[in-house]
């Protein structure tokens, strides 16, 4: 049972990991993108649209091209999230709009966009399918490693996930390394900490902000795609993604802006999300207590936020210019 719990926790955690990795990258450049929940919806629905159109264009299920059925949703998802990232960057970096307002507007827009197409896609393309169920695409997206089930608990805990899950972990590690060990990361962090210093050192503040925000959005968008195609087995239902986007932002604080900690953090948050299903067997728990347990990630995050502000340790503070627009003449 513990094994299946860990397995489910990881499945729950992966979308959060994508979201928080993307948001960390974005925040490191000084952009507090509160549009992440919307971007994740857009990432999910864009993949769904691509896959839906592709599946519907097939004469029958055997005509499927294994490459295209992965590539089309993936491409659509990345494109959709990229556009969202561009809207945010354009408004906040080029037009210097307020980041909080822009982010929240982006979330309203993104969730609306997701639910609208989720609810209207069938009407719009005029087909006679009863609901959006992309079982074929999902089959490919949720393929696990072939030898996973032969290895008992080890297989289930470590190997029984689809390629996107491993990609999430890989992304977290790569982003972590890029931020810590490369010149790109150094420049990016300089922009987030002190744009005036970066500017004086000849680093383009705008380019870095665009770059980090757009890549970050694309990473976050994959979280939405993973959720629909793997976790939800290709079934899109409106609002099912819920508040996972905000949970991803909570995770950013929980991990004190470190994607590699996010790998374990996301599994922990994922576990807290579903723990009630399992604790039911140990101690009888009613629905109401489950809701309190679901509160735990947020409470823990608030505590982390308070502790880092009380300890005032510089390494664990949010990037110093987080949320502020940079304008050279303001110096």
């Amino acid at each position: 049972m513990i094994v299946s719990f860990i397995h489910r926790a990881v499945m729950q955690g992966i979308p959060l990991l994508f979201g928080s990795t993307g948001e960390i990258l974005t925040e490191k450049s000084g952009n507090l993108n509160l549009g992440i929940p919307g971007i994740m919806y857009v990432g999910g629905i864009s993949g769904v649209i691509g896959s839906f159109l592709y599946e519907n264009s097939l004469p029958d299920r055997s005509a499927v091209n294994p490459f295209l059925i992965i590539a089309i949703p993936l491409f659509c998802c990345l494109l959709g999230s990229l556009i969202m990232g561009l809207i945010y960057s354009f408004l906040t970096t080029t037009l210097r709009a307020n980041q909080n307002v822009t982010g929240l507007a982006l979330t309203t827009f993104g969730i609306g966009f997701g639910n609208f197409f989720g609810g209207s896609l069938i009407t719009l393309v005029d087909t006679d399918v009863p609901s959006i169920t992309l079982s074929l695409t999902s089959q490919y997206f949720s393929k696990t490693l072939p030898f996973a089930h032969k290895l008992g608990w080890f297989g289930e805990v470590f190997l029984s996930y689809s390629f996107l899950a491993y990609f999430a972990i890989l992304t977290a590690i790569v982003v972590s390394l890029v931020l810590k060990r490369t010149r790109v990361g150094l420049n990016l962090r300089a922009v987030g900490e002190s744009p005036a210093t970066a500017d004086a050192a000849g680093i383009s503040v705008s380019k870095n902000k665009y770059f980090a925000t757009c890549i970050g959005s694309m990473i976050a968008g994959l979280g939405g795609l993973y959720y629909v195609m793997d976790y939800a087995s290709g079934v899109w239902s409106n609002d099912a993604f819920g508040d996972r986007g905000w949970l991803a932002i909570a995770l950013v604080i929980f991990t004190v802006w470190q994607p590699n900690i996010g790998i374990l953090g996301s599994i922990l948050f994922g576990g807290l999300y579903i723990v009630h299903n399992y604790m039911n067997n140990i101690i009888a728990m009613n629905m109401s207590t489950q809701e309190l347990i679901k509160m735990a990630p947020y409470v823990v995050t608030v505590i982390v936020l308070i502790v880092i502000s009380m300890r005032k340790k510089r390494e664990t503070q949010p990037p110093a210019s987080l949320g502020l627009a940079y304008f050279r003449e303001d110096r």
Partner: peptide, 30 residues
């Protein structure tokens, strides 16, 4: 949405677009 049988989240898209334009316009004021 009701008249054309679309999802009512359509209104959120509209809200988003209006806000994008207004916050963008502040730049040209400042």
């Amino acid at each position: 949405s009701t008249v054309f049988g679309l999802n009512d989240s359509f209104s959120d898209i509209i809200t988003g677009i209006i806000i994008f334009f207004i916050i963008g316009s502040e730049f040209f004021i400042n």
